[in-house]
Amino acid sequence: MSGQNNDIGKVSIIISRGSLDGVYPGLILANGARMEGFEANLFFTFFGLDAIIEKRMDKLSISTVGNAALRLPWGQKMPTWLGMLPGMASFATWMMKNEMEKLDIPPVREFLQIIKDSGAGIYACKLAMDMFHLKREDLWSGVDDILTVGDFYQISTGGLVLFT
């Protein structure tokens, strides 16, 4: 696919969840947009902020509680009560990180750096920052700015907005 008819132009992606499975789709979409030659913005809000908080971004995990689609390594559905057992979240996270490494999907910090170096904008939500009592210095140094919802719409003008 090439040519102007396939040019989305700009994509602004909101990441609102802080689990690994909540964060990666947005990262992959943003990276993919830049790879296709589109502009891209990432806007982290609510628990999604964890992905750009310096002390938390390397420790995101899979949510095993309340995740009805989770399966055991041999393909059988995981009983939901099992997800509550100690160690299950870290086990599932370890499994998923292994699989991602096989596909050459980078860890969160490295992926964000790639996305930033590709020229995408990386933003934190002001309201969520205030709500969680977070400061600029709590954020990863690659974050471009802290935006209000109005600012976010301004930078998104003329493009697609995706909520994840």
Partner: peptide, 9 residues
Amino acid sequence: SGVDTKELY
């Protein structure tokens, strides 16, 4: 390859 992301773009 020795070419980083920024340079590649």
